[in-house]
């Protein structure tokens, strides 16, 4: 085991320092070291999107990024999406549209959808489906998720 490394990153708008073994994924450190368990592990090989976070404004699978690569980056997780007293429109529309059943994929979907709406606030249904193809949901059949994202576009 290699020595742990100090990593400095901006995490959900807070400058943060943490220790990481070089082999640890960002997902593992977020969950196990920083207790930010809102980011979920579904497959650990980049095929489900449950671990989606934003790095410098772009979505990535945190299971496929080493924590040490976060050095100097701005990381946003599901815990950093809402404001103190107000949900993000995506979070609100997911609630209103019943876009979650078990809810385990929900954080990944919301972060991924935010990545889309931040750059393409008028994405159509096909584009939303395309953008979210890297996020698996097994409960909903995606219908209500897609509707929730399209609804949030109107609220933004």
């Amino acid at each position: 085991m290699a020595k742990k490394v100090i990593v400095q990153a901006n995490l959900n708008d807070n400058d943060t320092e943490f220790l990481s073994e070089p082999r640890q994924s960002l997902l593992e450190v977020l969950r196990e070291t920083l207790a930010l368990t809102g980011t979920k592990e579904g497959c650990n090989d980049g095929n489900c999107g449950a671990c989606t976070v934003m790095v410098d404004g772009r979505i990535v699978n945190s299971c496929l990024m080493l924590a040490v690569e976060a050095e100097g980056k701005k990381i946003t997780t599901i815990e950093g999406i809402a404001q103190a007293d107000k949900l993000h429109p995506l979070q609100q529309s997911f609630l209103e549209e019943a876009a979650l059943q078990c809810g385990i994929c929900t954080p990944g979907f919301i972060v991924a959808a935010k990545g889309l709406l931040d750059r393409e606030p008028k994405a159509d249904e096909h584009r939303v489906r395309h953008w979210l193809a890297g996020n698996l949901c097994r409960c909903t059949g995606y219908d209500k998720i897609i509707r929730a994202v399209l609804k949030a576009e109107k609220e933004l």
Binding site: G46, G49, T52, V55, R58, I59, V60, N61, L64, M65, A112, G115, L116, W131, A133, G134, N135
Partner: peptide
Amino acid sequence: IGGIQIQTR
């Protein structure tokens, strides 16, 4: 190649 998340990296 991959999904949007993969294409970031």
